[in-house]
Every structure is written in structure tokens, then in C-alpha cells.
């Protein structure tokens, strides 16, 4: 359902025509006044009528203002892993952030910030990745994914942009508790350098997205130090059930470790509030020039180890 709404909100002029016959008289009048310059508000209304379902913005209070009982929304998901016996690495780097406050240094270094939902479409081979990006590290330590950014959580609206996202870890060696992705996985993260030949999702704030009983949840991947808290947001730091802490995704011997559970609504509300308070400049998706994306092939990378 959300996908339909996505299309509607993004491609306003194209899709709106298809919805015209279901638009209420009031809206029609409004549309006429606007004379084709449809605003997002009108589009959302149109979506409501077209889809025949209730559209609830991810940031609105409608769904999640009440404290949810975490045990009513337990993650129960099964993946088909494709790797096993990978070398597990522990990450450590000099001056890596030990709290959300310290992480801001790294968020601020980008001119424009975003916080988006995206889906992994396919995986590039190391050679393809090097060719596209010019970076050698795709041969030894990092995987390049073709991904579709489908929701802009900062502006609470659908987008549709294809990007190449780099993430540490390859088939043969991965960071412990943060395995490589499978095609079809849905994630949320601040994504930077959108529009370049490759971009990066902030590793410390990358979340798996799951819809459980019609509510979208974000499960924080690893990086336990970066825990978000805000007493006014009741579903930001939910009780993570023991069975939800480790989930095998791509790799049998490297289950992902989820360290915090939030509703997407509260998580994005927190980030919106915090970042606007700090005056971070939001990425304007309309202004991003679409990079010429090559079609990635979902190739299984051979078992190369880092050394």
C-alpha cells in the first residue's frame, strides 16, 4: 500500500490524473484554484481516495502516540542465509564515536543530511564496484549494493531514487553482528553523498525495517553505544525481547545483533526534532541529479578473505 502512496506523492502530476475521478468536490475545487500546481497536501488527500486506505504519515502522532506494548509486536522473521563460516572481524578505529553526541561530528561533516528508508535491490561484484566507484576497497573489505530509496523520513514523504550504497563486509569476512545484506532487505539510515557514484549509510545509525501488525518498526543494527533516548517519545526505546536480539539474515555464523527497538514514527520524529534544532540542512531530493546507475547483478561474491 505504501508503495502506491509513494508513487503518488512523488510523481504528483503523472499520477494525479489517474486519481481524478475519485477526488472529492472540495478537493477538485482546490485543485482548480491551484491550477495544476498541486501541493503535497492535495496529493496526500488524493492518495487517500485512490488507494481506499487510510494514509497515515510516518511522523504523525495518529498511529503511535500511545505507548505500545513491545511484546504485542515481536519480530518473527526467517531469512534464507547464503553464507556460513565467515571470518568475523571486530571493528575498531581511532576516535570512533562512543555516543550519539559524539556521532554528531560525523553527521555535521556532510553538507546536507537525510534519513531515509531503502531496499536492497542487488549486489555488485567486486570488479563492477571498483569500476563504478574507482575505490579498491571493494576488492577486499566492502560490498556495493544497488538500492532503492523509497521514503524520505525527514520530509515524511515518498521518494524514488536508485543509489549505490557501500557497506563494510564481504562474503568471506564481515564485522561481527553486522552481516552483509540480502537482496530485499529494508533498511533505514542517514544516507550521505546521494547522487554520487556511491554513497554511504551512517553505520552507527542503520536500522532494519520490519512491519509487525501493520506498524513499522526500526531495529538498530549493532553499535550499542549509539542508543537514542527521549522521555517524550514512548516508542523510541522499546523493550527489546530476547528472541529479537539476534537474527540470522545472510550469514549463519554471523547473526545480526539488534540493540534497540523503536517505531519508525518515533525514531524519525526524534531525528527530525534533533536535527532541525541543530539547523542541519536537509537534502532536497528534487535537486539531486540522478546518477547514471548501472544495473547490478545479484552475484555471489567468492570467498575472498581480507588478507
Amino acid at each position: 500500500m505504501k508503495k502506491q502512496i509513494c508513487l503518488l506523492t512523488v510523481s504528483v502530476s503523472l499520477i494525479f490524473c489517474a486519481c481524478n475521478d475519485t477526488v472529492t468536490p472540495e478537493e477538485t475545487a482546490f485543485n482548480q484554484v491551484e491550477d495544476g500546481h498541486l501541493t503535497t497536501i492535495v496529493c496526500d488527500e488524493a492518495a487517500l481516495n485512490c488507494g481506499g486506505s487510510t494514509f497515515v504519515g510516518k511522523g504523525t502522532e495518529t498511529v503511535t502516540s500511545d505507548k505500545l506494548c513491545s511484546s504485542d509486536y515481536i519480530l518473527d522473521v526467517e531469512y534464507t542465509p547464503i553464507y556460513d563460516n565467515v571470518k568475523l572481524l571486530s571493528s575498531s578505529a581511532t576516535g570512533n564515536p562512543t555516543s550519539y553526541e559524539e556521532l554528531r561530528d560525523y553527521i555535521e561533516c556532510y553538507d546536507e543530511v537525510s534519513f531515509v528508508e531503502y531496499e536492497i535491490l542487488s549486489v555488485y561484484s567486486p570488479q563492477e564496484a571498483v569500476e563504478i566507484t574507482g575505490e579498491d576497497f571493494f576488492l577486499t573489505s566492502t560490498t556495493l549494493y544497488l538500492a532503492n530509496i523509497y521514503y524520505d523520513l525527514m520530509n515524511d514523504e515518498s521518494v524514488d531514487m536508485t543509489v549505490n550504497i557501500a557497506k563494510v563486509g564481504i562474503s568471506g569476512s564481515q564485522i561481527e553482528s553486522d552481516p552483509v545484506y540480502l537482496v530485499g532487505q529494508k533498511l533505514a539510515a542517514p544516507v550521505f553523498n546521494i547522487g554520487s557514484s556511491w554513497c554511504i549509510a551512517l553505520p552507527e545509525m542503520t536500522y532494519s525495517i520490519y512491519t509487525i501488525n501493520d506498524i513499522e518498526f526500526a531495529y538498530h543494527i549493532s553499535h550499542e553505544n549509539i542508543r537514542l533516548t527521549d522521555d517524550s517519545l514512548e516508542n523510541l526505546d522499546m523493550n527489546l525481547q530476547t528472541s529479537e536480539e539476534f537474527v540470522v539474515t545472510s550469514t549463519v555464523n554471523n547473526p545480526v545483533n539488534y540493540t534497540q527497538k523503536s517505531t519508525i514514527a518515533d525514531l524519525s520524529e526524534f531525528i527530525r526534532e534533533d536535527w532541525s534544532k541543530r539547523g542541519y540542512r536537509l537534502l532536497n531530493f528534487d535537486a539531486v541529479v540522478d546518477f547514471d546507475i548501472q544495473s547490478g547483478e545479484a552475484e555471489v561474491i567468492d570467498n575472498a578473505v581480507l588478507e
Partner: peptide
């Protein structure tokens, strides 16, 4: 920052 995050899985000075 992007290059470093891409190879080490976290943000870092070096």
C-alpha cells in the same frame, strides 16, 4: 568520512 565508514563500519578520525 564516507571512505573510512565504508571500510571500517564505523565513523573514525583515522
Amino acid at each position: 568520512s564516507a571512505q573510512i565508514s565504508a571500510v571500517c563500519g564505523s565513523s573514525a578520525w583515522a
